[in-house]
Design a protein around this nucleic acid. Sequence first.
DNA 1: GCCTTATTGAGAACGAATTTTCATTATCAT
DNA 2: ATGATAATGAAAATTCGTTCTCAATAAGGC
Lengths: 136, 136
Amino acid sequence: MERMTRQREAVLGALREAARPLSPAEILAAAQRTVPTLGLATVYRNIRAMLQEGGLVAVPLPGQADRYEVADEPDAVVHKHYFQCLSCDRVFPLEGCPGHLEEITPPGFVVEQHELTLRGRCIECATKKAGKRRAS
Amino acid sequence: MERMTRQREAVLGALREAARPLSPAEILAAAQRTVPTLGLATVYRNIRAMLQEGGLVAVPLPGQADRYEVADEPDAVVHKHYFQCLSCDRVFPLEGCPGHLEEITPPGFVVEQHELTLRGRCIECATKKAGKRRAS
DNA sequence: GCCTTATTGAGAACGAATTTTCATTATCAT
DNA sequence: ATGATAATGAAAATTCGTTCTCAATAAGGC
Protein backbone atom coordinates (compact mmCIF):
# COMPACT_ATOMS: atom_id res chain seq x y z
CA MET A 1 0.00 0.00 0.00
CA GLU A 2 1.92 2.97 -1.22
CA ARG A 3 -0.71 5.02 -2.93
CA MET A 4 -3.44 7.01 -1.32
CA THR A 5 -6.59 5.97 -3.08
CA ARG A 6 -10.15 7.14 -2.69
CA GLN A 7 -11.11 3.79 -1.25
CA ARG A 8 -8.37 3.84 1.30
CA GLU A 9 -9.36 7.31 2.39
CA ALA A 10 -12.94 6.15 2.67
CA VAL A 11 -11.96 3.21 4.87
CA LEU A 12 -9.86 5.37 7.12
CA GLY A 13 -12.56 8.00 7.22
CA ALA A 14 -15.18 5.48 8.22
CA LEU A 15 -13.03 4.31 11.11
CA ARG A 16 -12.21 7.83 12.23
CA GLU A 17 -15.80 8.97 12.22
CA ALA A 18 -17.15 5.90 13.93
CA ALA A 19 -15.19 6.50 17.13
CA ARG A 20 -15.69 2.85 17.93
CA PRO A 21 -14.28 -0.44 16.64
CA LEU A 22 -15.87 -1.56 13.38
CA SER A 23 -16.17 -4.91 11.69
CA PRO A 24 -15.07 -5.21 8.06
CA ALA A 25 -18.74 -5.28 7.07
CA GLU A 26 -19.45 -2.13 9.08
CA ILE A 27 -16.47 -0.43 7.48
CA LEU A 28 -17.70 -1.45 4.05
CA ALA A 29 -21.17 -0.07 4.66
CA ALA A 30 -19.87 3.21 6.03
CA ALA A 31 -17.18 3.71 3.40
CA GLN A 32 -19.58 2.97 0.58
CA ARG A 33 -21.36 6.19 1.36
CA THR A 34 -18.23 7.83 -0.02
CA VAL A 35 -17.19 5.26 -2.58
CA PRO A 36 -20.28 3.26 -3.59
CA THR A 37 -18.33 0.82 -5.74
CA LEU A 38 -16.07 -0.18 -2.84
CA GLY A 39 -15.67 -3.93 -2.48
CA LEU A 40 -15.19 -6.04 0.64
CA ALA A 41 -11.87 -7.39 -0.60
CA THR A 42 -10.51 -3.87 -0.75
CA VAL A 43 -11.68 -3.22 2.78
CA TYR A 44 -9.78 -6.28 3.95
CA ARG A 45 -6.71 -5.34 1.95
CA ASN A 46 -6.63 -1.90 3.48
CA ILE A 47 -7.25 -3.20 6.96
CA ARG A 48 -4.36 -5.57 6.59
CA ALA A 49 -2.04 -2.91 5.23
CA MET A 50 -2.91 -0.42 7.92
CA LEU A 51 -2.50 -3.03 10.61
CA GLN A 52 1.03 -3.70 9.43
CA GLU A 53 1.77 -0.01 9.22
CA GLY A 54 0.49 0.40 12.74
CA GLY A 55 -2.28 2.80 11.89
CA LEU A 56 -4.95 0.34 12.96
CA VAL A 57 -5.34 -2.10 15.80
CA ALA A 58 -7.47 -5.22 15.96
CA VAL A 59 -9.97 -5.54 18.76
CA PRO A 60 -10.51 -9.21 19.58
CA LEU A 61 -13.81 -10.17 21.21
CA PRO A 62 -14.85 -13.43 22.82
CA GLY A 63 -16.66 -15.55 20.27
CA GLN A 64 -16.66 -12.78 17.70
CA ALA A 65 -14.65 -11.77 14.67
CA ASP A 66 -12.17 -8.99 15.23
CA ARG A 67 -13.19 -5.37 15.01
CA TYR A 68 -10.78 -2.62 14.06
CA GLU A 69 -10.12 0.90 15.21
CA VAL A 70 -7.57 3.61 14.53
CA ALA A 71 -4.53 3.16 16.73
CA ASP A 72 -4.05 5.44 19.67
CA GLU A 73 -0.91 7.47 20.09
CA PRO A 74 2.10 5.14 20.31
CA ASP A 75 3.03 6.51 23.73
CA ALA A 76 -0.50 6.15 25.06
CA VAL A 77 0.00 2.92 26.92
CA VAL A 78 -3.59 3.18 28.01
CA HIS A 79 -4.92 -0.12 26.80
CA LYS A 80 -8.63 -0.25 26.36
CA HIS A 81 -11.64 -2.35 27.15
CA TYR A 82 -14.94 -2.60 25.37
CA PHE A 83 -18.65 -2.86 25.75
CA GLN A 84 -20.60 -4.94 23.26
CA CYS A 85 -24.32 -4.38 22.91
CA LEU A 86 -26.27 -7.62 22.90
CA SER A 87 -29.01 -5.95 20.93
CA CYS A 88 -27.39 -3.93 18.13
CA ASP A 89 -24.07 -5.75 18.24
CA ARG A 90 -22.08 -2.55 18.18
CA VAL A 91 -18.90 -2.28 20.21
CA PHE A 92 -17.98 0.78 22.25
CA PRO A 93 -14.66 1.68 23.83
CA LEU A 94 -14.59 2.16 27.59
CA GLU A 95 -12.57 4.54 29.67
CA GLY A 96 -10.36 3.14 32.35
CA CYS A 97 -9.54 -0.27 33.63
CA PRO A 98 -10.80 -2.21 36.64
CA GLY A 99 -7.36 -3.11 37.89
CA HIS A 100 -7.05 -5.49 40.84
CA LEU A 101 -5.70 -8.13 38.49
CA GLU A 102 -2.98 -9.21 40.86
CA GLU A 103 -5.60 -10.36 43.31
CA ILE A 104 -6.92 -12.99 40.96
CA THR A 105 -3.62 -14.01 39.40
CA PRO A 106 -2.26 -17.32 40.65
CA PRO A 107 1.22 -17.25 42.21
CA GLY A 108 3.97 -17.71 39.66
CA PHE A 109 1.87 -16.60 36.74
CA VAL A 110 3.04 -13.50 34.89
CA VAL A 111 0.35 -11.28 33.43
CA GLU A 112 1.37 -9.41 30.31
CA GLN A 113 -1.97 -8.41 28.89
CA HIS A 114 -5.60 -8.57 29.74
CA GLU A 115 -8.87 -8.07 28.01
CA LEU A 116 -12.19 -7.17 29.51
CA THR A 117 -15.43 -7.19 27.58
CA LEU A 118 -18.68 -5.98 29.06
CA ARG A 119 -21.92 -7.00 27.44
CA GLY A 120 -25.44 -5.75 27.79
CA ARG A 121 -27.46 -2.89 26.36
CA CYS A 122 -25.96 0.26 24.97
CA ILE A 123 -27.70 3.46 25.94
CA GLU A 124 -29.73 3.54 22.76
CA CYS A 125 -30.97 -0.03 22.98
CA ALA A 126 -31.55 0.26 26.71
CA THR A 127 -33.73 3.30 26.16
CA LYS A 128 -35.97 2.32 23.30
CA LYS A 129 -36.50 -1.16 24.62
CA ALA A 130 -37.78 -2.44 21.33
CA GLY A 131 -37.04 -5.86 19.95
CA LYS A 132 -33.63 -6.70 18.63
CA ARG A 133 -32.23 -4.49 15.96
CA ARG A 134 -29.06 -4.42 14.07
CA ALA A 135 -26.17 -2.04 13.96
CA SER A 136 -26.75 1.35 12.41
CA MET B 1 -26.73 -39.64 23.63
CA GLU B 2 -28.31 -42.33 25.65
CA ARG B 3 -25.60 -44.89 25.94
CA MET B 4 -22.50 -44.63 28.03
CA THR B 5 -19.68 -45.50 25.66
CA ARG B 6 -15.99 -45.86 26.28
CA GLN B 7 -15.32 -42.80 24.15
CA ARG B 8 -17.78 -40.67 26.05
CA GLU B 9 -16.24 -41.73 29.33
CA ALA B 10 -12.83 -40.89 27.94
CA VAL B 11 -13.94 -37.42 26.88
CA LEU B 12 -15.50 -36.70 30.24
CA GLY B 13 -12.50 -38.13 32.01
CA ALA B 14 -10.13 -35.94 30.06
CA LEU B 15 -12.08 -32.85 31.03
CA ARG B 16 -12.33 -33.85 34.66
CA GLU B 17 -8.65 -34.57 35.01
CA ALA B 18 -7.53 -31.46 33.19
CA ALA B 19 -9.08 -29.10 35.74
CA ARG B 20 -8.92 -26.41 33.10
CA PRO B 21 -10.84 -25.61 29.92
CA LEU B 22 -9.78 -27.75 26.98
CA SER B 23 -10.08 -27.31 23.26
CA PRO B 24 -11.59 -30.14 21.21
CA ALA B 25 -8.11 -30.99 20.01
CA GLU B 26 -6.81 -31.09 23.58
CA ILE B 27 -9.68 -33.30 24.59
CA LEU B 28 -8.97 -35.60 21.68
CA ALA B 29 -5.31 -35.93 22.56
CA ALA B 30 -6.01 -36.59 26.23
CA ALA B 31 -8.86 -39.01 25.64
CA GLN B 32 -6.91 -40.97 23.08
CA ARG B 33 -4.64 -42.15 25.86
CA THR B 34 -7.67 -44.16 26.96
CA VAL B 35 -9.30 -44.81 23.61
CA PRO B 36 -6.61 -44.59 20.92
CA THR B 37 -9.06 -44.96 18.05
CA LEU B 38 -11.14 -41.99 19.20
CA GLY B 39 -11.98 -39.58 16.40
CA LEU B 40 -12.39 -35.84 16.47
CA ALA B 41 -15.99 -36.06 15.23
CA THR B 42 -16.88 -38.11 18.26
CA VAL B 43 -15.28 -35.56 20.54
CA TYR B 44 -17.41 -32.85 18.98
CA ARG B 45 -20.53 -34.99 19.17
CA ASN B 46 -20.01 -35.62 22.84
CA ILE B 47 -19.18 -32.00 23.56
CA ARG B 48 -22.39 -30.96 21.89
CA ALA B 49 -24.46 -33.53 23.73
CA MET B 50 -22.99 -32.64 27.10
CA LEU B 51 -23.45 -28.95 26.46
CA GLN B 52 -27.14 -29.51 25.88
CA GLU B 53 -27.41 -31.69 28.92
CA GLY B 54 -25.71 -28.98 30.93
CA GLY B 55 -22.76 -31.07 31.98
CA LEU B 56 -20.34 -28.87 30.10
CA VAL B 57 -19.94 -25.16 29.54
CA ALA B 58 -18.21 -23.34 26.71
CA VAL B 59 -15.45 -20.89 27.55
CA PRO B 60 -15.23 -18.17 24.91
CA LEU B 61 -11.88 -16.44 24.49
CA PRO B 62 -10.97 -13.35 22.49
CA GLY B 63 -9.75 -14.35 19.06
CA GLN B 64 -9.80 -18.02 19.95
CA ALA B 65 -12.06 -21.00 19.45
CA ASP B 66 -14.12 -21.99 22.45
CA ARG B 67 -12.69 -24.22 25.15
CA TYR B 68 -14.84 -26.47 27.29
CA GLU B 69 -14.93 -27.42 30.93
CA VAL B 70 -17.18 -29.40 33.21
CA ALA B 71 -20.00 -27.27 34.51
CA ASP B 72 -19.89 -26.02 38.06
CA GLU B 73 -22.72 -26.62 40.47
CA PRO B 74 -25.90 -25.07 39.10
CA ASP B 75 -26.28 -22.86 42.17
CA ALA B 76 -22.72 -21.65 42.01
CA VAL B 77 -23.40 -18.32 40.34
CA VAL B 78 -19.71 -17.61 40.59
CA HIS B 79 -18.89 -16.85 37.00
CA LYS B 80 -15.27 -17.33 36.13
CA HIS B 81 -12.42 -15.65 34.36
CA TYR B 82 -9.40 -17.19 32.72
CA PHE B 83 -5.70 -16.91 32.14
CA GLN B 84 -4.29 -17.90 28.79
CA CYS B 85 -0.60 -18.67 28.49
CA LEU B 86 1.00 -16.96 25.52
CA SER B 87 3.65 -19.65 25.40
CA CYS B 88 1.90 -22.99 25.78
CA ASP B 89 -1.56 -21.74 24.84
CA ARG B 90 -3.20 -23.47 27.77
CA VAL B 91 -6.07 -21.81 29.59
CA PHE B 92 -6.43 -21.78 33.36
CA PRO B 93 -9.40 -20.82 35.47
CA LEU B 94 -9.00 -17.96 37.91
CA GLU B 95 -10.54 -17.41 41.30
CA GLY B 96 -12.54 -14.32 41.87
CA CYS B 97 -13.50 -11.31 39.86
CA PRO B 98 -12.05 -7.81 39.76
CA GLY B 99 -15.37 -6.03 40.11
CA HIS B 100 -15.46 -2.25 39.82
CA LEU B 101 -17.24 -2.58 36.51
CA GLU B 102 -19.66 0.22 37.21
CA GLU B 103 -16.78 2.64 37.30
CA ILE B 104 -15.94 2.10 33.68
CA THR B 105 -19.47 1.68 32.38
CA PRO B 106 -20.78 4.71 30.49
CA PRO B 107 -23.99 6.28 31.84
CA GLY B 108 -27.10 4.69 30.42
CA PHE B 109 -25.40 1.48 29.46
CA VAL B 110 -26.67 -1.68 31.15
CA VAL B 111 -24.12 -4.38 31.87
CA GLU B 112 -25.49 -7.91 31.86
CA GLN B 113 -22.33 -9.97 31.50
CA HIS B 114 -18.61 -9.49 31.41
CA GLU B 115 -15.59 -11.49 30.47
CA LEU B 116 -12.03 -11.03 31.56
CA THR B 117 -9.07 -12.81 30.05
CA LEU B 118 -5.56 -12.43 31.39
CA ARG B 119 -2.65 -13.38 29.16
CA GLY B 120 0.98 -13.96 29.86
CA ARG B 121 3.09 -16.83 31.15
CA CYS B 122 1.74 -19.64 33.18
CA ILE B 123 3.90 -20.73 36.07
CA GLU B 124 5.52 -23.49 34.05
CA CYS B 125 6.40 -21.36 31.05
CA ALA B 126 7.46 -18.47 33.28
CA THR B 127 9.90 -20.75 35.05
CA LYS B 128 11.58 -22.52 32.16
CA LYS B 129 11.94 -19.33 30.18
CA ALA B 130 12.01 -20.92 26.77
CA GLY B 131 11.71 -18.84 23.62
CA LYS B 132 8.51 -17.02 22.86
CA ARG B 133 6.05 -18.53 20.52
CA ARG B 134 3.51 -15.79 20.21
CA ALA B 135 4.28 -12.15 20.04
CA SER B 136 2.44 -9.69 22.21
C1' DG C 1 -26.21 -64.42 23.87
C1' DC C 2 -29.22 -61.91 20.72
C1' DC C 3 -31.05 -58.06 18.55
C1' DT C 4 -32.30 -53.32 18.02
C1' DT C 5 -30.45 -49.17 17.19
C1' DA C 6 -27.50 -45.49 19.27
C1' DT C 7 -22.82 -44.49 18.50
C1' DT C 8 -18.59 -44.54 16.18
C1' DG C 9 -14.63 -43.39 12.77
C1' DA C 10 -13.19 -41.36 8.58
C1' DG C 11 -13.71 -38.37 5.39
C1' DA C 12 -16.65 -35.30 2.90
C1' DA C 13 -19.15 -31.19 3.51
C1' DC C 14 -20.20 -27.06 5.61
C1' DG C 15 -20.36 -21.80 6.93
C1' DA C 16 -18.12 -17.83 8.05
C1' DA C 17 -14.31 -14.97 7.69
C1' DT C 18 -10.52 -13.78 5.05
C1' DT C 19 -7.31 -14.05 1.10
C1' DT C 20 -6.15 -14.66 -3.61
C1' DT C 21 -6.61 -14.36 -8.63
C1' DC C 22 -6.76 -11.70 -12.58
C1' DA C 23 -8.22 -8.49 -15.77
C1' DT C 24 -9.16 -3.57 -15.40
C1' DT C 25 -8.49 1.01 -13.43
C1' DA C 26 -6.17 4.83 -11.53
C1' DT C 27 -2.12 6.89 -8.79
C1' DC C 28 1.73 9.65 -9.10
C1' DA C 29 6.87 10.15 -10.42
C1' DT C 30 8.49 11.78 -14.44
C1' DA D 1 0.26 14.27 -20.05
C1' DT D 2 2.42 9.67 -20.02
C1' DG D 3 3.60 5.32 -18.47
C1' DA D 4 4.89 1.94 -15.01
C1' DT D 5 2.69 -0.44 -11.81
C1' DA D 6 0.02 -0.29 -7.37
C1' DA D 7 -4.68 -0.83 -6.28
C1' DT D 8 -9.29 -2.18 -7.33
C1' DG D 9 -13.70 -5.14 -7.92
C1' DA D 10 -15.76 -9.53 -8.45
C1' DA D 11 -15.58 -14.00 -7.96
C1' DA D 12 -13.16 -18.00 -6.88
C1' DA D 13 -10.34 -20.05 -3.47
C1' DT D 14 -8.61 -20.92 1.13
C1' DT D 15 -8.67 -21.61 6.04
C1' DC D 16 -10.42 -23.10 10.24
C1' DG D 17 -13.62 -24.90 13.20
C1' DT D 18 -17.44 -27.70 13.27
C1' DT D 19 -21.12 -30.80 11.48
C1' DC D 20 -22.78 -34.36 8.49
C1' DT D 21 -22.82 -38.87 5.87
C1' DC D 22 -22.73 -43.59 5.98
C1' DA D 23 -21.19 -48.10 6.61
C1' DA D 24 -19.47 -50.63 10.54
C1' DT D 25 -19.52 -51.32 15.53
C1' DA D 26 -21.12 -51.99 20.11
C1' DA D 27 -24.34 -50.71 24.27
C1' DG D 28 -27.63 -52.66 26.96
C1' DG D 29 -32.69 -54.41 27.38
C1' DC D 30 -34.35 -58.80 26.60
